[in-house]
Computed example of a mutant assay.
Amino acid sequence: MTPGGTHRTGHRGGFWRSNSLTLTFGGAFLVVLAAQAVAGHAEFNEQLAVEGLQRIGLGPYLMSSDFAVDVTENWQSEFLQFFLYVYGTVYLLQRGSPESKPLDRVGIESERDQRVGEHATPESPRWAADRGWRQSVYAHSLGLVMAGLFLLSWLAQSVSGAAAHNELRLRQLQDPVGWVSYLGSADFWSRSLQNWQSELLAVASMAVLSVYLRQRGSPESKPVGSPHHATGVEG
């Protein structure tokens, strides 16, 4: 307590309030993942019943390639969206959108604007002040990590997808195919492309709709009273 018996209010809510966005969406992710597991398990057993095969429990389903491919094909499309968005918005602009940089700031910007090297402040990350490879890596770290997560999840999708595809082929008394052959299959590319197109549509829609529409209090929207042509302004 401060003198006079009042509480300090500089960090009201502490850890939970300061991290509510991550905690809320992280918790929602776990709830939805669990719900997906239950629904997917029921659907998988329905398919087994149609084929005259014995049903399996939830535990074995969670360890199955069928569950793994359903999860990873969504993950890789999300990481692809953020990778493309992080890199694309360096050079691509949308007049009037808060999702775009101002029209006069296209490109990687100056060291002064980015507060790197001699322009770094005492509060800047330590690698931002470095002039060697550390600064170069850190300056692209978000895009590199998103690209890495996309490639890893896409690889996981390909492996689990090949296993799930072969399980189906075996149930239909067909010969399994190798992983390399599966990479060129319609099943693999159908799973990938149907997710990619939806993510690209979502990004394009957000960029355009945020020019004319508003959400009061959201950093993804311009202030309600901002003109439509205002670019790179957040609420």
Rank of each mutant, 00 (worst) to 15 (best):
I56P: 03
G184P: 11
T22L: 14
W16K: 03
H165D: 07
V177D: 02
A28I: 15
G52E: 02
S110H: 06
V50F: 13
L84I: 14
D113Y: 15
L193H: 07
R169L: 13
S185H: 09
W154Q: 13
R131G: 05
Q197R: 15
V50A: 15
W196H: 08
E199D: 04
P122K: 07
Q197G: 02
S136I: 03
E43D: 04
S226V: 07
N19S: 11
L152N: 07
S65H: 06
L193M: 08
A68F: 04
L92M: 08
N19W: 10
T89D: 04
D113H: 14
S218K: 10
L58I: 09
G143W: 01
R12C: 08
L30N: 00
F25D: 00
Y87G: 01
A39G: 03
R214G: 12
Q194H: 12
Q215A: 11
A163M: 13
L170F: 05
L193Q: 00
A39M: 14
P219A: 09
L209R: 11
S198R: 15
V211E: 00
A202I: 13
P98W: 11
H7S: 04
G52A: 11
S205F: 14
A49N: 06
L168D: 11
H165R: 05
P176A: 06
T121G: 11
G143I: 03
S218Q: 07
A37E: 00
T72Y: 14
F83N: 01
M1Y: 02
P125E: 07
P125F: 12
L201D: 02
V32G: 04
D187M: 05
R115T: 09
G232N: 01
Q114G: 08
A39C: 04
R95Y: 06
G13F: 04
L33M: 14
P98R: 11
